[in-house]
Design a protein around this nucleic acid. Structure first.
Lengths: 369, 369
DNA sequence: ATGAAAGCGCTAACAG
DNA sequence: CTGTTAGCGCTTTCAT
């Protein structure tokens, strides 16, 4: 059933070595013989056995790709780009979702080692160090974002959160917002911490103090975003909110809709990541872009560099990924500065009546200045 | 560097055969020896080489998973579920996105054959038949949705589109809608055709004729959904629209927002698929659910059945996946029946002025009855 | 119950 | 330029 190289050799009346050479397009093989080989190969529909090749060559031509959750819209774009590059270079990708589960991370690493991957891109934001050690011990080329150690064999993609977040804060300030809230991600993630700190820095740069209650802890999910809305409005009703990722912003907008809070007129919202869906939200979400395709491209290139260059620690292994604001329609002048005479009627179910934003509107009060 | 089974054998002072048996938990091996082996394995951090195992066993323990586009939100959920099952059963998954490109489909199939996958789930809706032949020729177990041939070795998941779509149509009819439009997917896809036909059938069942202009051709993308809005409003302004998938519905809602058309009061929208995001749309999208997790589970189980059962064509190979409506908030009573005295002001930018829906509102006309 | 040895399908010396 | 042959790391008879 399964053709092998010997069968081809027999039918083409050459040795297996010649078949191997022909298939691998070694130039020294006689064109006549090569043609004969290819003819048989095509006729029989022969495909070389990658397992056998990998065994003898010591190269699996598989890259591991670790993501947090493929169901998080941030990742599919990355996976797609990474795969495009992989097929181009004749690599396979072994994809694993850690789903934030230590057991899964462990099995993830084990599977990659067992399949003898040629490199691993860890694009999850946070991973058990002990597992990384297993990979490092085997000298598997690694690429991280944000959190990698500075040692040979591992590349690092450093994300410049500050630029994009500064732009977002200044955009909001220009719109006369002074009370700006921030919804963080899970605080055990370096990337979440970095975003929060970038926010604080950007605020301080323009002389806006940030009180502790302006910063509420989220979890980078849509549900977390929904909960966050109530948290930020408990105190002093900020007129704008910056979210640590788009999912949070989307959940928050959805909750605002339920409570009859109009985005952007009652509350301006800015996200982070720029997932593709953001453009299709209602209203389209203004957000800080961290290009997923670029990230994937850098990660892949970093891996290829490590694999190609036989000499260890030859090329540079630090890469930077910039961020920048993309303006859409979820932000507006702060209430009281928007040139409107009175609050508009809003569409939406308006189930919730507890919101301070809503309360103000019901009483016919003028928007917070 | 790379430990092998011989090294383990040497250190544990047993033969390689015993190491192999111990690792594979063959019960006949002496517990004493087994313990010795495991001790060395743990100390050295030995991981068996899957390539070698696959080569000798003839089983790669890899399942191919073909999807249309991982960036289409319909698929990540499927991939995640499929992967969960795979790790549970010690399988790897070789994921390929065809991105509607024949070249990619071809390379996809080639890669799978070269890696000697133990089975392939083709969850894309439409695939070149000739490629399927390559797989069938090698007797690779296959599972399709909707389109598979009825032959041994291939399982089929038949989706019952009718049930869910009937529910959607009747829901709309109950809301007094009589002019209901349908936005199709790409008409070369069987699944898109099936949905459209289910719509026609459901309409006819309740005595609502469907004119050709009520059916507009989309492409299952958000951009297509945006374009579709203008197409459906050209003629007689339907009061409700059913979309062939959620992406289309999302794009359409976004365009409606731009044009100042209020969903659901001016226009009711129903989607199809129930991707996770639908619940977070504004308004939350009423849609026909086709469970992605269930689909993935069935697909995986089908593959396992084919692989496990040595005897060919033993179990059943037809599976059914049902669909049903999930009610959210993108549908309302048809205009004129909604108990409102006049059209509400809508939130939104209202850039577009060309929409008939909008024109009516501007003129202060009462909504279409 | 354990070990010796023969491959799995392929590539890469090494000879010719 | 082509063929012979020795493995790659593992499993699995077949003896013992």
């Amino acid at each position: 059933m399964d053709m092998d190289i010997r069968e081809i050799a027999r039918r083409a009346k050459v040795s297996t070595a010649t078949v191997s050479r022909a298939i691998n397009r070694i130039p020294t093989v006689d064109p006549q013989l090569a043609k004969r080989v290819w003819k048989v190969v095509d006729e029989l529909g022969y495909y070389p056995n990658t397992q056998a090749r990998a065994l003898v060559s010591g190269k699996s031509r598989i890259f591991g790709l670790v993501v947090s959750e493929i169901t998080n819209p941030f990742f599919p774009e990355i996976v797609q780009t990474f795969e495009n590059l992989a097929v181009q270079h004749n690599y396979e990708i072994l994809l694993t979702s850690t789903i934030h589960d230590p057991k899964r991370m462990e099995s993830s690493v084990r599977r990659m080692i067992e399949r003898r991957v040629d490199g691993v891109a860890i694009l999850t934001f946070g991973m058990e160090d002990s597992l990384i050690e297993h990979l490092r011990f085997r000298k598997v080329p690694l690429v991280f974002v944000d959190v990698g150690p500075d040692v040979p064999g591992v590349s690092n993609i450093r994300v410049n959160y500050q630029n994009g977040i500064r732009q977002a804060v200044q955009h909001l300030a220009a719109l006369r917002h002074t009370r700006i809230a921030f919804v963080t991600g899970p605080l055990h993630l370096k990337s979440a911490l970095a975003r929060r700190d970038a926010f604080k820095t950007a605020m301080e740069e323009i002389g806006l103090p940030v009180a502790p209650e302006q910063i509420v802890v989220g979890d980078h999910t849509m549900e977390g975003g929904m909960r966050a809305l109530d948290l930020i409005s408990v105190r002093d009703c900020p007129t704008a909110v910056l979210c640590s990722n788009d999912m949070t912003a989307i959940g928050l907008m959805r909750e605002a809709y339920d409570q009859g809070i109009n985005i952007p007129h009652d509350l301006s919202v800015v996200g982070f990541d720029d997932i593709r869906l953001s453009e299709f939200m209602i209203p389209p979400l203004t957000t800080v872009q961290m290009s997923q395709t670029e990230l994937a491209q850098i990660a892949f290139k970093a891996l290829m560099n490590e694999v190609d260059g036989e000499s260890p620690a030859q090329g540079k292994s630090e890469y930077e990924l910039n961020t920048h604001l993309v303006l859409r329609r979820s932000t507006a002048l702060a209430p009281g500065h928007d040139g409107r005479l009175k609050p508009l009627m809003v569409s939406g179910a308006g189930r919730g009546l507890s919101s301070p934003y809503r309360a103000r509107r019901r009483k016919g009060m003028k928007p917070l200045a």
